[in-house]
Nucleic acid binder design. Sequence first.
DNA 1: GCGATCTTGTGAACCGGTTTAGTAAACTAG
DNA 2: CTAGTTTACTAAACCGGTTCACAAGATCGC
Lengths: 337, 337
Amino acid sequence: MANLQDVAKAAGVSKTTVSRFLNGSLELPDRTVQQIETAIRALNYVPNPHARRLSLGRSDTVALVVPDIATPFFATFVSAVEEAADARGLTLALHATLNRSRREMKYLDFIAHGHADGLIFVTNHASDAAVAAKINAAGRCVVVDEDVVGAEVPKLFCDNLQGGALAGRHLAEAGHRHVLFVGGVEEMISGARRYQGFRRGFEQCAGPQARIDRICGQYTYEAGHAAARRFLQSDPRPTAIFASSDELAIGTLEVLREAGVSVPREVSLIGFDDVGPLHLFAPAITAVRQPVRDLGRRALELVFDSDWKDREKLHSEELLPVRLIARESVAPPIRTT
Amino acid sequence: MANLQDVAKAAGVSKTTVSRFLNGSLELPDRTVQQIETAIRALNYVPNPHARRLSLGRSDTVALVVPDIATPFFATFVSAVEEAADARGLTLALHATLNRSRREMKYLDFIAHGHADGLIFVTNHASDAAVAAKINAAGRCVVVDEDVVGAEVPKLFCDNLQGGALAGRHLAEAGHRHVLFVGGVEEMISGARRYQGFRRGFEQCAGPQARIDRICGQYTYEAGHAAARRFLQSDPRPTAIFASSDELAIGTLEVLREAGVSVPREVSLIGFDDVGPLHLFAPAITAVRQPVRDLGRRALELVFDSDWKDREKLHSEELLPVRLIARESVAPPIRTT
DNA sequence: GCGATCTTGTGAACCGGTTTAGTAAACTAG
DNA sequence: CTAGTTTACTAAACCGGTTCACAAGATCGC
């Protein structure tokens, strides 16, 4: 592999000249330009990325830390971030934490130690003070999708409050008065906001007879199964379920179907996320759609376009709008009379 | 940020000593060890990754090049590679090509220029001689999932022949004699092998009345729609469909359902991949399952455990076994009599 | 008592860029 | 004709590690 020195020698100039020419910090007469360009082509010269990074003190890399990669939501998110990173000439370093604080901390150190110029941090569990402290110490880190309390950095979420409210109103408008909210673990801010919004929207619309049951767990298929099983045993049964993630909705539907409970005839179902092929299920599932790709794009902008010197203004919170996609899984409740 | 020099000074030894001690190439008496360790802790020293990489001439990074990240198949694959990479202390650099040769070539250059120590290359379109040439020039690159003709590197595929055969025999054994094969673009090796295996398995089992129709397109929902529409117009209609990817199967099912064609009563359906929640569809879709996570794990092993000096032995091809997951979407054909 | 060997290191080169500070030569203005 | 400016470049330091080649002092065998 040819290096800058080789190019300089072949072009009859010094290293400095070639380097500065390539970086645009030096104007040169045509003849010299041509000599350099000829040398570069002849030697097939490409700058050594490690030398460059050492010298410049940056890595041209964004680290992306997510709980998991394989789920549709995160896969879509990762895809959007990669696209935005590539557009800026950045490499994406991808890390999965499997929702473990240890790993989260490890990857947060990565950026502090220079492995990446910026970090997009997504967690999926209740806030952890140690993680928050590391985030604050890491520099150039943004928190996305799920809040980390105590972290004073730019934050980007979907409008979970609005999303919950849309779902609540939708069910109330269809005539439901007794509904079940299936959420993530109770300590998670996103879930809490969805619940809060749901409750507000539902109660505002359904009036004084409104009744909401609530089951909390993980955002997984299994938790969906468990919730549906508890639903089946409950008496009286709610007439509609708001499952606050795709996985929960799918898991719920799976158990309902096995039990022979017809959706939406016997129970209505509404999901959240809408990144999987919910429209292909039987019935097609009504859901609140998160703008996942926007989330990814915007996250990258926040990392690289924020003013990181001004610690005061950093601690911001941005919400992206969600909308309801109405399909076939919500219908008026059966008359129990 | 403290550097090696600072640590050396604080410990009262030289840079060399600290470096060699940390890399295990120098035995030291307890007293010195303690001085060094104290200094490291006091200064919170962590080696600068860029300096390390420049000096060592490696990047501790694997590049993973895939057509897309957001589809369940690739997302699962990426997840498995990341897990395996992390276990080896490697960082994963993820790149999406969106199936464009330009981008594929660009990322193949990445490894040649030292951005990564190895590259796992996955394409999704017909072989391209220019791409093959770059792969051969890149060094430490393995080709996974879809063949690139002309590339003389380790290759890793699922046993598409066997997978096709399993599907073919399954349909034949259910009594079908006229079936439709929905495949990817005709030039893709993986698809060709699936067809070849399907044909062999089906004909061997179904005997002389066996008849196979074939539709080719992309591995997308849309292609599944198109194939199903053509299926609906065909006369006589095949009694079963083998859709050779999850997307094709889902797309096909979607159109069939809209058209009111009952699966499996009026037509049987069998899929391929089985990484999405095929078991949740109505009906649950029978499919050939690819061992996607094994594919990822093994790909990483091939990159880092192959002997890259011996160009002769490199050009190998490894097949991972697949199996059939029987669910509800295959039934005997209706008697036309 | 003396060379050999072991212990415990070290100085300086090297990886391949970027950048600061500065210079020789040509040109311009008065 | 000369001082001042512009053009066209460069030497050397720097980023922060790794490693080759070598060495001072202690110990050991005979």
